[in-house]
Amino acid sequence: MNLNILIMNGYGLYVWSAFIFTFLVCLILFLKTKKSLNKVEKDFHEEVKKLSAEQVKTLKKRKISKEILNPQVKIK
């Protein structure tokens, strides 16, 4: 009975390969997206560091930029 989940009455190869393929594609998409998000976020913070104090002040007044710089909000 326990082994049957792997064999699936002879169809195991097909079923498992379909599920594993799906999982792999999802994983690759996830990792790629995460990598590019991390890179862009890092670049953004570095750019902000170069700015003067006054510029940062105006930046933080803006809704979107404030949201990006807020360290608590992280989608990962």
């Binding site: 997206t33 995460k34 590019s36 998000l37 862009v40 976020e41 670049d43 953004f44 750019e47 979107i64 930029s65 990006i68 989608i75 990962k76």
Partner: peptide, 12 residues
Amino acid sequence: MKYRTEIIRMKK
């Protein structure tokens, strides 16, 4: 995640 990436790119 994608949306955030695009927004940050735009803001940069």
